[in-house]
Amino acid sequence: MNRILVAIKRVVDYNVRVRVKPDGTGVVTDGVKMSINPFDEIALEEALRIKEKGQAQEVVVVTIGPADCQQQLRTALAMGADRALHVQTDAVIEPLTAARIFKSLIDREQPMLAILGKQAIDDDCNQTGQMLSALWGRPQATFASKVEIGDGVATVTREIDAGLETLEIDLPAVITTDLRLNEPRYVKLPDIMKAKKKPLDVLEPAALGVTPSEQLKAIRYEPPPQRSKGVMVKDAQELVAALRSKGLIQ
């Protein structure tokens, strides 16, 4: 069966203005809205579209984290994923650990494609997809803005610093999504009801043979240095004069 594995992460919602706790031990997450990482939503949307074109038969959504993550898995099922896997743990999961867990799930599920968001908007690491493809020994097409599935291959356009790069990769492979790949669909109420009946299996990292290790210890969190508010000028002339006086323009 042609299967697509989509990894999602529960993160502080895109619209929340994140604040550092006064004691510097982390950021405030109590009572804060949590959502599927936006890039992962794009990953899921792409998988669903590939399935809707008849190029895959099943979309499996996976996540790693505490029990609360099942809310995001249910949302993903409501979007259209066929079933969900929850690797439940309260441990700190670094990207390399996440990649090891996903690799073991790939060994079980044998997907033709694993699609991940290019980065999570909480830790902004941008690592897991690349690490997964290295462990899997398969191609990676990161920062995808266009994906076309062919016969045993995918043609992927990537947003890179120099412009748009197109790669051809053999399947199975890992793709990570950039913002402009697609616009994720909205979840409709009947789909939320239907999603409650879809299968959601819970596993433990140990059952997958992975022990979460904390190789990177967060010592301290701080708010970023603030830029101070400058001055308002009344017109273009005053602006040019100010920039000239600072030697910023001739």
């Binding site: 994140v18 950021v27 909480d122 190789q215 969190y221």
Partner: peptide, 15 residues
């Protein structure tokens, strides 16, 4: 390193 789109700076120690 910055996290949360630069809304926080974290100091990280590796063994």
């Amino acid at each position: 390193r910055p996290i949360y789109a630069g809304n926080a700076i974290v100091t990280v120690e590796v063994a």
